[in-house]
Each structure stands twice: as structure tokens, then as C-alpha cells.
Design a protein around this nucleic acid. Structure first.
Length: 444
RNA sequence: CGGGCUAUAGCGCAGUCUGGUAGCGCGUUCGUCUGGGGGACGAGAGGUCGUGAGUUCAAAUCUCGCUAGCCCGACCA
């Protein structure tokens, strides 16, 4: 993409409404524009990041055997009457009336809809287990939206719903989700710690929130140092291996890790002092096994092998996709701007022409651009007539991982320069060799 | 929903107390110089001062209402 042909409305100064880093940087780098409180338009750069996160989430869900669907944003109020949540949900739910006077609502979540889909089509244990998920816009009419996309009213969320014939199978579904979430966060370049969550009136051990550690996090978290030392890494996951999956889940959830809501100081104090850590965290996902709460109220039954009927066991699982954009920035930035982890970067690299109007540098930039694009890489070419300082400042701000710097000085000696945004390290690369050496470097 | 604050050019702000020709920086347009970390000079464009009413010869400025946004708290993916 040639920058002069793109739409990248960056701001040099901080918008006064943005208080926290990610919100400020998202506005300054032209990723979003506020439309009203807690509701945003996603501009090209922001949309690219959002879609990259979405794609990774989808891939990991599909890898875990979960099935994508798409449910509507507008839902009929009748279904919510059935579950009893029409009254319970309160004014956080945006209620709408259509022209016929029918009660509608902008969905804050989808348990009712998905249960309705399930009960219409699945009646036998033979069709189980199944997990349906979708990634869709939700709306919660927060009293006080803030922190940009981290706590907007409209938000983009992956929510999945598992259906199982019995508790044992449902727990395996729960564990499967745990692993698929851990993998998702790792691929995004984030460390998210599963923390025991409040299960409310339903009770039980089966709810975890996933927290990313960041200074600006909204909750205080307490954890055993062990949890930040563990990662899935490259290991192969066999989602059909119940024991294996359960063992991995155990290894991640056994060490102490809780938010201030469920924190137990006495338990925490049993850890050796050097392993007791506390920090702030941003919640980026939650998984929940709630049994038959909705299947009972909405009458979603299945027939078991012995011919008896039973209510289907359910769980729901969410990842805040739009919130993750903010969380990623909170976890990856410096004074100059954003530092995107490569997997979610809006562009892998940017070619910076240091001397606009110089035929030779322009030609080299264009050649590099063509090479990289034809190699399948998504690169930006800063072909603006701007001073170098402006170009560097812009690119540092929007956080593209690699800067390919082309200027007459180095070029006269046959070199171009490659700078890594994260550590600022620069490498000189022979221009004659740039198609192979550069490609290798970018594919690290 | 309780408490606090704000609204003047695309963005950041001054002007409001003490009513009298609407200003600064950045950005933007044109030109010249410049060219390895937000450059210089010159010339422009751009605002019914959030909105409605009132007071006054005269309102960005004073009074009242309304709306929107932000912050702290309670609440939440």
C-alpha cells in the first residue's frame, strides 16, 4: 500500500478525551474515531488489526473443533422472556421496538438465540458434543463507557456455546476451551493468565477469566509466579485426548491466580513470599460452564442412549476481540507509540523513502515494494513528501514491526537499512542482496 | 446512578472573572529554500464561540433551561 493512496488520519497531539495509553494511541494513529460515547468507527488501520485478531481467534476455535455460525445483532425480546433475563438484565440492555410494536433488543450476548437454534434442530445425544461460536458485534449500554475500545458500549466479541450430554463431557468442553484460549492469546503475542472467576449463584469451579497484565488494568490480580512461567509453546494439542487436555488445564490452573473479586489472602499467604506477585490486569476473556440454566428455562432437551430425556449441559465462552486491540496496545507500547506484535501488526513492514523526489531512492523503494508484495507480504510504502523526522515519528507511532529505510547516503554505498521497531536495532543490508536477505529477515 | 468538570477553526488551547472588531500553536492550501528523527521563510483558506431562551444599545463573555462529552466512585467482556 502506498501511503499517499491510503487513509491514515494520524493526530500529532493528544485528543483531550483520551486518558489511557491505548485509547490515546488508537486515536492518534488513526485506528478509530469516536461516534458517540463508547461507540467507534474503525478506520483502515484499526480494522486491519481487528480482523487479524479475529482471524487468529477463528483459526484456534476451528482447530479445537468448534463450529462457526453467525447470529444477528437484533434479537426478539420473546426469547429473553423465556429465559427470564428480559427483566434480569436491566437497563444495560438496549431495548428497541419495531414498527409493529414488537419488543426487540440489541444483543448483549447470545445464550437465548443459540439455545433456540439448538433445540430446534438437535434432539439426540448422538449429535453431541457440539460447540457453536460466532464473532459478532454486541451492545451493552454501560452507564459509563471509558478507556476507548476497552470498555465501549458496542464491542466485537467471540462467543461460543458448548452443548454436551453429561457433566463429564461438558467439563471436557470446558477444558478444550481453556486450551484454545491459551493458544489464541499466545499467538497474539500476549500472556493471558487464567484466573479463577466468580461463578455467581450457579457455583462450582468452572469459570475462569483470562487476564493480561498491564499497568492500566482495571482489576488488581494476585498470582503465583509459576503461572507466568508456563506457556503452551509449540506443543501439539490433541483436543480429543480428554486426559491429556485435563492435565494441561490442571498445570495452568493449579497455581494460585485470582482477581481482587475472588482473592483469598489466607490461601495466597501459603505461597513462599518470593512467588507471591500482584499486578493489574485487563480481562480479555472468560469461560463458563453453567450446566442446565438455559436448557431448563428454554426447554432444550436431548434423548439419551437409554431413551430418557434430559436437559442439555451448556457452557459459554467469550473473547473480547475489540477489547483485545486495546489490551495489546497497553501491553506493547513505548513513549513513541505502539509496538505491534508481528502476528497482529496492520502491516509487517514499511518502506521509508528518506528523500522524496530523489529518482534513485524512489526507484529502489518501488522495487523493494514490488518484491515484497509479490512474495506475499503486506507492506506499506511511505511515499509522502515529508521530512524524515515526520516519517519516522509516524511509523514509530503506528507501530509497524519493521522499517525498511532507503536513503541516498547508504544507497550510494550499496546498502539499505532495516530497523526493528521493538528494540530500535538497525541492520545494514546490501541492496543487491535485498530480495533474499530482506525476505529472510522479515520472516523471522 | 451519586459527585466533579468541560463545550471557541480538523486537533490542542487562550479569551469568559471585569460584556464592545474572535486569537495562538499544530495541521491544512499555494510558493521558495531544504532534505538521515515532527525544518525555515512568505502568502492564504478555515469559526452563526454545543444548543434554546432571557438580560442589555451591545453577549464567546452575565442568567436560566437543554444536549453532548470527559474524570472519580458504584457496575461490567
Amino acid at each position: 500500500m502506498y501511503l499517499t493512496k491510503y487513509f491514515l488520519p494520524i493526530l500529532k497531539e493528544n485528543p483531550s478525551e483520551a486518558q489511557i495509553t491505548s485509547h490515546r494511541l488508537m486515536l492518534r494513529s488513526g485506528m478509530i474515531k469516536q461516534s458517540s460515547a463508547g461507540i467507534y468507527s474503525w478506520l483502515p488501520l484499526g480494522l486491519k488489526v481487528l480482523k487479524k485478531i479475529e482471524q487468529i481467534v477463528i483459526e484456534e476455535q476451528v482447530a479445537a473443533g468448534h463450529i462457526p455460525i453467525l447470529m444477528p445483532t437484533i434479537q426478539p425480546a420473546d426469547l429473553w422472556k423465556e429465559s427470564g433475563r428480559l427483566n434480569d438484565y436491566g437497563s444495560e440492555m438496549l431495548r428497541i421496538e419495531d414498527r409493529h410494536g414488537r419488543g426487540m433488543l440489541y444483543g448483549p450476548t447470545n445464550e437465548e438465540l443459540v439455545t433456540d437454534i439448538f433445540r430446534s434442530h438437535i434432539t439426540s445425544y448422538k449429535d453431541l458434543p457440539k460447540t457453536l461460536f460466532h464473532i459478532q458485534w454486541k451492545f451493552r449500554d454501560e452507564v459509563r463507557p471509558r478507556f476507548g475500545v476497552m470498555r465501549g458500549r458496542e464491542f466485537f466479541m467471540k462467543d461460543g456455546y458448548s452443548f454436551d450430554m453429561d457433566r463429564e463431557s461438558a467439563i471436557h468442553s470446558y477444558n478444550r476451551h481453556m486450551i484454545s484460549y491459551l493458544r489464541t492469546y499466545e499467538r497474539l503475542g500476549l500472556q493471558a493468565i487464567p484466573m479463577k472467576a466468580d461463578t455467581g449463584p450457579i457455583g462450582g469451579d468452572y469459570s475462569h477469566e483470562f487476564l493480561v497484565l498491564a499497568e492500566t488494568g482495571e482489576s488488581e490480580v494476585f498470582y503465583d509466579k509459576k503461572v507466568t512461567d508456563s506457556s503452551l509453546g509449540e506443543r501439539k494439542i490433541d483436543y480429543s485426548d480428554k486426559q491429556g487436555i485435563a492435565a494441561i488445564v490442571e498445570s495452568f490452573t493449579q497455581p494460585y491466580a485470582r482477581t481482587d473479586e475472588t482473592h483469598d489472602q489466607n490461601l495466597f499467604n501459603k505461597l513462599p513470599p518470593e512467588r507471591r506477585l500482584s499486578a493489574r490486569g485487563i480481562e480479555v476473556g472468560q469461560i463458563f460452564y453453567f450446566g442446565t440454566k438455559y436448557s431448563e428455562s428454554m426447554n432444550a432437551e436431548i434423548v439419551l442412549p437409554d431413551g430418557k430425556r434430559t436437559f442439555v449441559e451448556m457452557g459459554s465462552h467469550g473473547i473480547g476481540v475489540s477489547r483485545l486491540v486495546g489490551a495489546l496496545i497497553e501491553a506493547n507500547h513505548d513513549d513513541l507509540g505502539i509496538i505491534w506484535p508481528t502476528p497482529v501488526a496492520p502491516f509487517l513492514a514499511v518502506i521509508i523513502n528518506l528523500k522524496h523526489g530523489d529518482k534513485k531512492t524512489e526507484k529502489v523503494c518501488e522495487k523493494i515494494y514490488e518484491n515484497l508484495v509479490s512474495a506475499g507480504l503486506d507492506v506499506l510504502y511511505d511515499d509522502r513528501d515529508e521530512r524524515v523526522g515526520v516519517k519516522f515519528a509516524t511509523m514509530d507511532l503506528i507501530g509497524i514491526p519493521w522499517q525498511i529505510i532507503v536513503g541516498p547516503r547508504d544507497l550510494s554505498e550499496g546498502f539499505i537499512e532495516l530497523k526493528f521497531r521493538k528494540d530500535g536495532k538497525r541492520t545494514r543490508i546490501s541492496f543487491s542482496d535485498c530480495s533474499s536477505e530482506l525476505l529472510n529477515a522479515l520472516r523471522v
